[in-house]
């Protein structure tokens, strides 16, 4: 891993503000929250999903369904990657039938992860709707995938790396470009 110079795009305050904004957009003033399920995509989509879900529950006093998706088995590049990835558990402990599912991930890039997540959710049943919320949209889509709720859109070069750090996984909230 080359030691690149890193540039902080979002500091912890900004990350917090963006998450609050996403919460407001997703909650849509508290309408039909009984049908809403938040599903985090491993790895960092999970703590984000947990925060979003917790904040909605606090604001509106409802209990939301929360799920975790490990998309390893649905990746389209399993035969190409050098290191065989470890499979972790997927936990969808509620019935997806007829639900409004909001997938949550930290970075939207090529769109392949989201495509895999959609395929996997559909193997659990038929939701009424699937939406996507991301902290950062960095462009360079390779599939026709778009997010419904975007924290921040940033321009990046294809070879740059965008790292999202979260308190739950990395000890602090920060988004950097290298």
């Amino acid at each position: 891993m080359t030691d690149r110079a890193q540039q902080v795009i979002l500091d912890s305050v900004q990350v917090g503000e963006i998450i609050t904004s996403l919460v407001r957009q997703i909650a849509q003033e508290g309408k039909n929250l009984g049908n809403l399920a938040i599903v985090g995509i491993r790895r960092r989509g999970v703590p984000l999903a947990q925060r979003i879900s917790a904040q909605i529950e606090k604001l509106y006093g409802v209990k939301l369904e929360l799920g975790i998706l490990d998309i390893t088995l649905y990746r389209d590049d399993l035969s190409l990657i050098a290191v065989q990835p470890v499979v972790h558990a997927t936990e969808i402990n509620f019935n997806v039938e007829g639900k409004r599912i909001v997938l949550v991930d930290d970075v939207l890039f090529t769109g392949r992860t989201v495509r895999a997540a959609i395929s996997e959710i559909l193997d659990f049943g038929r939701p009424a709707k699937i939406e996507l919320a991301v902290l950062v949209d960095r462009g360079h889509r390779e599939l026709p995938i778009a997010a419904d709720y975007i924290g921040k859109k940033i321009e990046t070069r294809r070879d740059e790396l965008v790292d999202v750090l979260l308190t739950e996984t990395d000890g602090e909230d920060k988004v950097v470009i290298r």
Binding site: L73, Y74, E120, L122, D123, F124, G125
Partner: peptide, 8 residues
Amino acid sequence: RSIRKVPP
């Protein structure tokens, strides 16, 4: 799951 299949 209801569809007891994964694609790898």
